[in-house]
Design a protein around this nucleic acid. Sequence first.
DNA 1: AAAGAAATAGGAATAATTCCTAACTAGGAG
DNA 2: CTCCTAGTTAGGAATTATTCCTATTTCTTT
Lengths: 145, 145
Amino acid sequence: MIPGEFLKRLKRLGVRLTPQRQEILQVLWERAQSGGQPVNAEEVMKCVRTRYPGISLDTVYRTLATFTREGIVNELQFKDQSRRYELVIQGEHHHHLVCLGCGYVREIAYCPEDIIERVRESYADFKIEEHSFTIYGYCAQCRED
Amino acid sequence: MIPGEFLKRLKRLGVRLTPQRQEILQVLWERAQSGGQPVNAEEVMKCVRTRYPGISLDTVYRTLATFTREGIVNELQFKDQSRRYELVIQGEHHHHLVCLGCGYVREIAYCPEDIIERVRESYADFKIEEHSFTIYGYCAQCRED
DNA sequence: AAAGAAATAGGAATAATTCCTAACTAGGAG
DNA sequence: CTCCTAGTTAGGAATTATTCCTATTTCTTT
């Protein structure tokens, strides 16, 4: 089940709790549990539809945008053009290793914090909000082709 | 004028030199000279059309893809959904600081090479090809709004 | 239980990019 | 210099991803 943590957090943030949103949260949570492969809107819709057939793609997009704004999910943008999302686990921060062949995504724990600090100092008039760091290449499977 | 360097390089790579491609290269070169703000396909087409009115958007996309494949340009993908391109200047490597308000892009010289090396070692079966590192935030102008 | 503000479905609209095909052309061979 | 051909182009159609629109529904507070 969805850990109460997220529901409480949404409530605290004043985000209205509709069944659609709960289902989407559920899908994101399951993803996070089973390997953490980020999902795109289309996939979320398909998953949700197995249990909540009526949901519209627009609702999925809107909800993911809301969750992103509230810091519940991370919106990722890789080279392959479709946005993907992952649940933000409290106290965790990571980046990604992406296969250019099959699109498989792997988390990497390292973060270039030192550089971010340096940039924060050198560009004091720029207010840093977030950052993305992604390494692209070919996984064992794909490098043979 | 376009430095011979690029034309020679294209020739050496066996890339056919059409007037369209030369014009696109010219536009990218001018951009690089005047501040290095990366361009998207639409903008490239508009610029080229002032001197070569017949060019199609498809040709611009195809050419930019070709140049990217040959290492002549860098394809960038920021959060705002449209791809942008910048000329690769030999011996130079940089990342980007992007304003979430106005989209203004600034180059940053630092690169998390140490992390990339560590990842290369830890994930020996993954063949690293490239990486992207982008810091997002608000520029002096936009942080007031 | 009622009211109001916010969210939803579904389809239309938009934006970015790619595909398709007939016509054209750069560049090497003769 | 001319010819040939594989690679390239224009233009519009098609595709993909995302957002917009609006009448209807539904949380949440009272």
